[in-house]
Write a protein that binds this DNA or RNA. Structure first.
Ligand SMILES: [Mn+2]
Ligand SMILES: [Mn+2]
Ligand SMILES: [Mn+2]
Ligand SMILES: [Mn+2]
Lengths: 257, 257
DNA sequence: TAAGTATGTTAGGCAAGTCTAATAAATACT
DNA sequence: AGTATTTATTAGACTTGCCTAACATACTTA
């Protein structure tokens, strides 16, 4: 009877993998866990027993593995950390998908919620602040790929000019430009900024608890065929909303990329 | 005879600690290593034996511990990763010193040189690009500390105005404003941007190998009493230069903070 | 329904990393 | 110099996490 208060990196990975397998394939088989984690099947059995002892999975020999509520909470935490770190590396630092993914899966065990939250904040700030903005970030990525070429004194001048004209344009068009919409209207891949949360149901609370405020970024990940469960990503959290719930979230569309 | 090609997180930490102790106190005693790493003394002995087997430290029972050249290289790598991650968290993300330090020491084992380099690039870009700049970063930190207060629509306007006036000023004053100096002229704590590397000695090569280009940030960390060994930080690397060498590096001063 | 195959578990072993208790060496103090 | 104290090492044990080989169960299919 060992009472290890904190979860080891290894067990966090098992939890993460189980969660993702269940999400993707409806069921997490020992075989698949082993394959994903590049580990032998007996190792998986061992891990499942350890997780069961900690009441994070429901497990009995030869039976189906499911996550307990506590296990799901823990798994989601890991998944979020992984996602946030990966996104930051890919979108802000211009690291390649594969490397970002692998690195994120190692870093995810080291960062606190605090740091992750701040990272999300910063990435959003960088992507949406008119003084920086998507183009600016993209410029950094470009600069990186071009490496040492062009110490950017020249292009820096051009960059500022561009920024000035952009801001002027924005001012001329004024605030009314923002075609107001609700989350329900966005298509997969589209992103928007929260304008406000209509209606005060449990969704509002759930979302507010995540640190979402006016101006927060939200991205529609997937919309089910009938438009009902809408998967969104917000503050690094993955969320599944019903159509009516999504209709209660006013957003302003954001340009792609 | 075990040949583990890659160093474990644990051994990296021992190496890091030994390196820092030697730098600070001239000698790394088993007792101090144990204390810093919060580990028992026998554990240290074990680690030293493991490191000695890998030819990373010079070790014999009851003797002084020193790093072999290979060990020093490895240790410096770890120290740099730690420093870069910590700096990013403190300066860009506005995470507190203590938490940043602890987190950096866990993340340092997970990030590749590639990611660290990119992180340095990005932090420099963010701090020096006129469209972002130190004030802008600071604004983000401030926003974070103020938390949910002020979704920044208001202050965003003000921020842009400020940026515009700043850029205008910069233009009026023109390029001649940049009081050219050399690294030798900077005081501890001051930062500058590399203008060019005068003279083509080995220093130039050493520095160029680190990815330093025109525009790279450099910070003077410490200057010895007689002004001779000058400690600088550049691209996350720690470097010690002689006075003459520092005099060969043309920089433009950067405003504090 | 009776193989035959795929999947999962047990048994046994090993390496890394940590600990405590006991011992040895080095250093500091009369 | 001789004892006390500090510092370092050895011995032995334990935990975690991984492995291979052998066995058990579940699913497939003839
Ligand atoms: Mn992981
Ligand atoms: Mn992961
Ligand atoms: Mn560390
Ligand atoms: Mn460290």
């Amino acid at each position: 009877m060992t009472r290890t208060e904190t979860l080891s990196e290894s067990l966090e990975d098992y939890l993460e993998t189980i969660f993702l397998l269940i999400r993707e394939k409806a069921v997490a088989r020992s075989r698949d866990i082993a394959e994903r984690l590049k580990v032998s099947r007996p190792s998986v059995t061992g891990a499942l027993q350890a997780l069961a002892e900690r009441a994070l999975v429901n497990y009995e020999p030869y039976g189906h593995v499911t996550l307990t509520p506590a296990g799901e909470v823990e798994a989601k935490r890991v998944v979020r950390r992984h996602g946030v770190l990966k996104d930051f590396m890919v979108k802000v630092l211009s690291i390649g998908e594969a490397e970002a993914d692998a690195t994120a899966c190692r870093m995810e065990h080291a960062v606190s919620k605090n740091v992750v939250d701040r990272l999300v904040e910063f990435a959003e700030f960088v992507e949406t602040c008119p003084r920086a903005g998507a183009k600016w970030v993209h410029g950094f990525g470009y600069r990186c790929q071009e490496a040492a070429a062009d110490p950017s004194q020249q292009s820096c001048e051009r960059c500022i000019e561009q920024c000035l004209t952009d801001v002027k344009k924005r001012k001329q068009k004024g605030n009314k430009t923002i075609a107001s919409a609700t989350l329900k209207d966005l298509k997969p891949g589209e992103r928007g900024q929260i304008e406000r949360l209509l209606g005060g149901g449990p969704v509002k609370r759930r979302i507010a608890d995540m640190g979402v405020i006016k101006g927060s970024l939200v991205e529609v990940v997937r919309v089910a065929p009938l438009g009902d469960p809408i998967d969104i990503k917000i503050k690094g959290y993955h969320l599944s909303l019903r159509k009516e719930e999504a209709a209660g979230i006013a957003v302003s569309r954001l340009p792609e990329k």
